[in-house]
Protein backbone atom coordinates (compact mmCIF):
# COMPACT_ATOMS: atom_id res chain seq x y z
CA UNK A 1 0.00 0.00 0.00
CA UNK A 2 1.29 3.46 -0.65
CA UNK A 3 0.62 6.96 -1.84
CA UNK A 4 1.75 8.44 -5.13
CA UNK A 5 4.92 9.83 -3.58
CA UNK A 6 5.96 7.55 -0.74
CA UNK A 7 5.43 3.89 0.04
CA UNK A 8 4.69 2.05 3.25
CA UNK A 9 7.52 0.09 4.80
CA UNK A 10 9.54 3.09 5.95
CA UNK A 11 10.89 2.81 9.46
CA UNK A 12 9.71 6.11 10.95
CA UNK A 13 8.61 5.56 14.56
CA UNK A 14 5.00 4.69 15.30
CA UNK A 15 3.10 7.97 15.43
CA UNK A 16 5.84 10.02 13.71
CA UNK A 17 4.61 13.53 13.01
CA UNK A 18 7.49 14.44 10.72
CA UNK A 19 6.67 11.81 8.12
CA UNK A 20 3.04 12.95 8.17
CA UNK A 21 4.31 16.45 7.34
CA UNK A 22 6.71 15.20 4.66
CA UNK A 23 3.93 13.21 2.98
CA UNK A 24 1.40 16.04 3.18
CA UNK A 25 3.87 18.41 1.51
CA UNK A 26 4.89 15.98 -1.23
CA UNK A 27 1.36 14.82 -1.98
CA UNK A 28 0.29 18.45 -2.31
CA UNK A 29 3.15 19.19 -4.73
CA UNK A 30 2.34 16.29 -7.06
CA UNK A 31 4.72 14.15 -9.09
CA UNK A 32 6.51 16.83 -11.13
CA UNK A 33 8.93 17.41 -8.30
CA UNK A 34 12.53 16.82 -7.24
CA UNK A 35 13.19 16.42 -3.52
CA UNK A 36 16.48 17.30 -1.86
CA UNK A 37 16.53 15.93 1.68
CA UNK A 38 18.83 16.90 4.52
CA UNK A 39 20.29 14.14 6.67
CA UNK A 40 17.91 13.22 9.47
CA UNK A 41 15.01 10.99 10.42
CA UNK A 42 13.25 11.46 7.07
CA UNK A 43 16.37 10.36 5.22
CA UNK A 44 17.35 7.46 7.42
CA UNK A 45 13.88 5.92 7.71
CA UNK A 46 13.14 5.98 3.99
CA UNK A 47 16.22 5.05 1.99
CA UNK A 48 18.19 2.02 3.21
CA UNK A 49 20.22 1.02 0.14
CA UNK A 50 19.25 -0.71 -2.13
CA UNK A 51 15.65 0.21 -1.35
CA UNK A 52 13.72 3.47 -1.15
CA UNK A 53 10.28 4.53 0.02
CA UNK A 54 10.22 7.48 -2.39
CA UNK A 55 8.53 7.38 -5.78
CA UNK A 56 9.63 10.84 -6.89
CA UNK A 57 13.22 11.88 -7.76
CA UNK A 58 15.03 12.27 -4.47
CA UNK A 59 18.56 13.28 -3.46
CA UNK A 60 20.37 13.28 -0.16
CA UNK A 61 23.86 14.78 0.08
CA UNK A 62 24.77 15.82 3.62
CA UNK A 63 23.20 17.31 6.76
CA UNK A 64 23.91 21.00 6.17
CA UNK A 65 23.49 21.45 2.44
CA UNK A 66 19.97 20.48 1.35
CA UNK A 67 19.26 24.08 0.33
CA UNK A 68 22.50 24.65 -1.60
CA UNK A 69 22.33 21.25 -3.31
CA UNK A 70 18.75 22.12 -4.28
CA UNK A 71 19.99 25.41 -5.77
CA UNK A 72 22.23 23.34 -8.06
CA UNK A 73 19.29 21.07 -8.91
CA UNK A 74 16.96 23.91 -9.85
CA UNK A 75 19.54 25.68 -12.02
CA UNK A 76 20.37 22.38 -13.75
CA UNK A 77 16.68 21.66 -14.19
CA UNK A 78 16.13 25.02 -15.91
CA UNK A 79 19.16 24.43 -18.17
CA UNK A 80 17.50 21.18 -19.22
CA UNK A 81 14.47 23.23 -20.27
CA UNK A 82 12.22 21.96 -17.51
CA UNK A 83 10.22 23.75 -14.85
CA UNK A 84 10.17 21.10 -12.14
CA UNK A 85 9.18 22.05 -8.58
CA UNK A 86 12.36 21.64 -6.56
CA UNK A 87 11.99 21.27 -2.81
CA UNK A 88 14.70 21.29 -0.17
CA UNK A 89 13.39 19.70 2.99
CA UNK A 90 14.96 19.10 6.37
CA UNK A 91 14.40 19.24 10.08
CA UNK A 92 15.08 22.01 12.56
CA UNK A 93 18.69 20.84 12.97
CA UNK A 94 19.39 20.57 9.25
CA UNK A 95 17.70 23.82 8.26
CA UNK A 96 17.81 26.11 11.31
CA UNK A 97 21.21 25.18 12.81
CA UNK A 98 23.85 23.47 10.69
CA UNK A 99 22.19 24.29 7.36
CA UNK A 100 21.27 27.91 8.08
CA UNK A 101 24.10 29.28 5.93
CA UNK A 102 22.93 27.26 2.95
CA UNK A 103 19.32 28.27 3.62
CA UNK A 104 20.24 31.94 3.84
CA UNK A 105 22.33 31.67 0.68
CA UNK A 106 19.56 30.28 -1.50
CA UNK A 107 17.02 32.80 -0.17
CA UNK A 108 19.37 35.70 -0.86
CA UNK A 109 20.16 34.43 -4.36
CA UNK A 110 16.50 34.08 -5.24
CA UNK A 111 16.45 30.53 -6.60
CA UNK A 112 13.01 29.24 -7.56
CA UNK A 113 12.88 26.79 -4.66
CA UNK A 114 10.53 25.45 -1.98
CA UNK A 115 12.25 25.37 1.39
CA UNK A 116 10.51 23.21 3.96
CA UNK A 117 11.45 22.94 7.61
CA UNK A 118 9.78 20.01 9.37
CA UNK A 119 10.31 21.12 12.95
CA UNK A 120 10.21 18.57 15.76
CA UNK A 121 12.19 20.81 18.06
CA UNK A 122 15.34 18.76 18.63
CA UNK A 123 17.91 16.46 16.97
CA UNK A 124 15.73 13.36 17.09
CA UNK A 125 17.74 11.16 14.74
CA UNK A 126 20.79 11.27 17.00
CA UNK A 127 18.80 10.83 20.21
CA UNK A 128 16.92 14.00 21.14
CA UNK A 129 19.62 16.65 21.54
CA UNK A 130 18.88 20.36 21.79
CA UNK A 131 18.66 22.51 18.65
CA UNK A 132 17.90 26.17 18.10
CA UNK A 133 14.35 24.99 17.42
CA UNK A 134 14.00 23.47 20.88
CA UNK A 135 11.62 25.60 22.98
CA UNK A 136 12.54 27.09 26.33
CA UNK A 137 12.19 24.67 29.27
CA UNK A 138 11.99 21.58 27.04
CA UNK A 139 14.22 18.81 28.35
CA UNK A 140 16.46 17.12 25.80
CA UNK A 141 19.41 14.78 26.29
CA UNK A 142 21.78 17.77 26.13
CA UNK A 143 19.50 20.12 28.10
CA UNK A 144 18.21 17.72 30.72
CA UNK A 145 16.00 19.02 33.49
CA UNK A 146 18.03 18.79 36.69
CA UNK A 147 17.82 20.04 40.23
CA UNK A 148 19.28 23.40 39.15
CA UNK A 149 18.56 23.83 35.42
CA UNK A 150 14.96 23.41 34.20
CA UNK A 151 15.70 22.18 30.65
CA UNK A 152 16.62 24.49 27.77
CA UNK A 153 17.48 28.02 28.85
CA UNK A 154 16.94 29.89 25.57
CA UNK A 155 13.87 30.76 23.54
CA UNK A 156 13.17 29.04 20.22
CA UNK A 157 14.63 30.75 17.17
CA UNK A 158 12.25 32.16 14.54
CA UNK A 159 13.35 30.83 11.17
CA UNK A 160 10.36 32.56 9.52
CA UNK A 161 11.65 35.95 10.65
CA UNK A 162 15.11 35.08 9.39
CA UNK A 163 13.55 34.09 6.08
CA UNK A 164 11.51 37.27 5.69
CA UNK A 165 14.60 39.35 6.40
CA UNK A 166 15.84 38.07 3.02
CA UNK A 167 12.90 39.77 1.28
CA UNK A 168 11.59 36.51 -0.21
CA UNK A 169 8.08 36.46 -1.68
CA UNK A 170 6.46 33.87 0.56
CA UNK A 171 6.92 32.58 4.10
CA UNK A 172 4.35 30.57 6.02
CA UNK A 173 3.97 28.54 9.16
CA UNK A 174 1.83 25.43 9.32
CA UNK A 175 1.07 22.49 11.57
CA UNK A 176 0.23 18.94 10.60
CA UNK A 177 -2.75 19.34 12.93
CA UNK A 178 -4.31 21.60 10.29
CA UNK A 179 -3.82 19.75 7.01
CA UNK A 180 -6.16 21.90 4.87
CA UNK A 181 -4.25 25.02 5.87
CA UNK A 182 -0.92 23.25 5.31
CA UNK A 183 -1.84 21.93 1.86
CA UNK A 184 -3.27 25.28 0.76
CA UNK A 185 -0.01 26.99 1.75
CA UNK A 186 2.12 24.39 -0.05
CA UNK A 187 0.05 24.83 -3.21
CA UNK A 188 0.14 28.60 -3.00
CA UNK A 189 3.90 28.53 -2.51
CA UNK A 190 4.31 26.20 -5.48
CA UNK A 191 2.67 28.80 -7.70
CA UNK A 192 5.02 31.58 -6.63
CA UNK A 193 8.34 32.09 -8.41
CA UNK A 194 11.40 32.51 -6.24
CA UNK A 195 12.35 31.19 -2.83
CA UNK A 196 9.53 30.37 -0.44
CA UNK A 197 9.80 28.91 3.02
CA UNK A 198 7.37 26.76 4.97
CA UNK A 199 7.96 26.14 8.64
CA UNK A 200 5.92 23.12 9.67
CA UNK A 201 5.27 21.94 13.19
CA UNK A 202 5.66 18.13 13.39
CA UNK A 203 5.39 16.53 16.85
CA UNK A 204 7.68 13.65 17.80
CA UNK A 205 6.26 11.04 20.22
CA UNK A 206 9.64 9.52 21.04
CA UNK A 207 11.53 12.77 21.50
CA UNK A 208 8.83 14.52 23.47
CA UNK A 209 7.73 11.51 25.46
CA UNK A 210 4.01 11.26 24.77
CA UNK A 211 1.72 8.46 23.68
CA UNK A 212 2.07 7.83 19.92
CA UNK A 213 -1.67 8.31 19.32
CA UNK A 214 -1.46 11.95 20.51
CA UNK A 215 0.63 13.39 17.62
CA UNK A 216 -2.31 15.16 16.00
CA UNK A 217 -3.64 16.24 19.40
CA UNK A 218 -0.43 18.16 20.14
CA UNK A 219 -0.23 19.49 16.59
CA UNK A 220 -3.67 21.04 17.08
CA UNK A 221 -3.30 21.99 20.72
CA UNK A 222 -0.18 24.11 20.27
CA UNK A 223 -2.00 26.20 17.68
CA UNK A 224 -5.00 26.61 19.99
CA UNK A 225 -2.78 27.85 22.81
CA UNK A 226 -1.21 30.47 20.54
CA UNK A 227 2.29 29.08 21.08
CA UNK A 228 2.51 28.15 17.38
CA UNK A 229 0.87 30.88 15.32
CA UNK A 230 -0.34 29.98 11.85
CA UNK A 231 0.36 32.81 9.43
CA UNK A 232 1.66 33.58 5.99
CA UNK A 233 3.73 36.50 4.78
CA UNK A 234 3.14 37.11 1.10
CA UNK A 235 5.26 39.83 -0.46
CA UNK A 236 5.72 41.25 2.99
CA UNK A 237 2.04 41.24 3.90
CA UNK A 238 1.42 39.23 7.03
CA UNK A 239 -1.90 37.44 7.29
CA UNK A 240 -2.88 35.41 10.31
CA UNK A 241 -4.38 32.12 9.13
CA UNK A 242 -6.15 31.21 12.33
CA UNK A 243 -6.78 32.99 15.64
CA UNK A 244 -5.98 30.87 18.68
CA UNK A 245 -8.53 30.31 21.41
CA UNK A 246 -5.64 30.80 23.84
CA UNK A 247 -6.36 27.45 25.43
CA UNK A 248 -4.42 27.05 28.69
CA UNK A 249 -0.80 26.08 28.06
CA UNK A 250 -1.18 23.27 30.59
CA UNK A 251 -3.33 21.44 28.03
CA UNK A 252 -0.34 21.43 25.73
CA UNK A 253 2.46 20.77 28.22
CA UNK A 254 0.67 17.95 30.03
CA UNK A 255 1.46 14.46 28.82
CA UNK A 256 4.84 15.43 27.33
CA UNK A 257 7.78 14.05 29.31
CA UNK A 258 10.00 16.87 28.07
CA UNK A 259 7.90 19.29 30.11
CA UNK A 260 7.34 17.03 33.14
CA UNK A 261 9.48 19.29 35.33
CA UNK A 262 7.84 22.54 34.24
CA UNK A 263 6.69 24.80 37.09
CA UNK A 264 3.81 27.32 37.23
CA UNK A 265 6.27 30.24 37.04
CA UNK A 266 7.73 28.81 33.81
CA UNK A 267 4.28 28.42 32.32
CA UNK A 268 3.50 31.99 33.34
CA UNK A 269 6.63 33.23 31.60
CA UNK A 270 5.78 31.32 28.40
CA UNK A 271 2.21 32.53 28.61
CA UNK A 272 3.36 36.16 28.79
CA UNK A 273 5.59 35.59 25.80
CA UNK A 274 2.62 34.18 23.86
CA UNK A 275 0.53 37.24 24.72
CA UNK A 276 3.26 39.68 23.76
CA UNK A 277 4.00 37.72 20.59
CA UNK A 278 0.38 37.83 19.48
CA UNK A 279 0.19 41.55 20.15
CA UNK A 280 3.17 42.01 17.84
CA UNK A 281 1.72 39.68 15.20
CA UNK A 282 -1.58 41.53 15.14
CA UNK A 283 0.19 44.86 15.01
CA UNK A 284 2.16 43.67 12.01
CA UNK A 285 -0.92 42.27 10.33
CA UNK A 286 -2.58 45.66 10.70
CA UNK A 287 0.50 47.58 9.56
CA UNK A 288 0.47 45.51 6.39
CA UNK A 289 4.13 45.28 5.51
CA UNK A 290 6.79 43.15 7.11
CA UNK A 291 9.43 43.09 4.43
CA UNK A 292 12.99 43.99 5.23
CA UNK A 293 13.83 46.33 2.39
CA UNK A 294 16.88 48.04 3.86
CA UNK A 295 19.66 46.50 5.86
Amino acid sequence: MSSEVISSGHSACAGCGEIIGERMVLEALGKDVIVCQATGCMEITTTPYPRTAFKVPWLHVTFENAASAASGIVEADRKLGRNTTVVAIGGDGGMMDIGVRALSGVMERGHDLMLVVTDNEAYMNTGIQRSSGTPKYAATTTTPAGSVVPGKREWKKSISRIAIAHGIPYVATASIGFPEDLVAKVKKAQGIKGPKLLHIYTPCPVGWGYDSSKTVYYAKKIVETGLWPLYEIENGKLTISQRPTFAPLEEYFTGQKRYKHIKPEHIKEVSERVKAGWKELEKQEKAGVDLMLLP
Binding site: M1, S2, I6, S7, S8, G9, H10, S11, A14, T46, T47, P48, Y49, P50, R51, T52, A53, F54, K55, V56
Partner: peptide, 22 residues
Protein backbone atom coordinates in the same frame (compact mmCIF):
# COMPACT_ATOMS: atom_id res chain seq x y z
CA UNK B 1 24.03 0.24 -9.16
CA UNK B 2 26.81 2.70 -10.04
CA UNK B 3 27.16 5.24 -7.25
CA UNK B 4 24.54 3.59 -5.05
CA UNK B 5 21.67 4.93 -7.15
CA UNK B 6 18.33 3.25 -6.42
CA UNK B 7 16.00 2.96 -9.40
CA UNK B 8 13.35 0.66 -7.90
CA UNK B 9 11.30 3.48 -6.44
CA UNK B 10 8.86 2.65 -3.66
CA UNK B 11 10.68 -0.64 -3.13
CA UNK B 12 10.81 -0.18 0.63
CA UNK B 13 7.28 -1.61 0.69
CA UNK B 14 8.99 -4.99 0.97
CA UNK B 15 9.68 -3.99 4.59
CA UNK B 16 6.61 -5.23 6.46
CA UNK B 17 6.46 -3.00 9.53
CA UNK B 18 3.26 -4.60 10.86
CA UNK B 19 5.39 -6.76 13.16
CA UNK B 20 6.21 -3.65 15.24
CA UNK B 21 2.62 -3.41 16.44
CA UNK B 22 1.60 -3.79 20.09
Amino acid sequence: MVGGVVTKVGSLDSNKTGSWRS
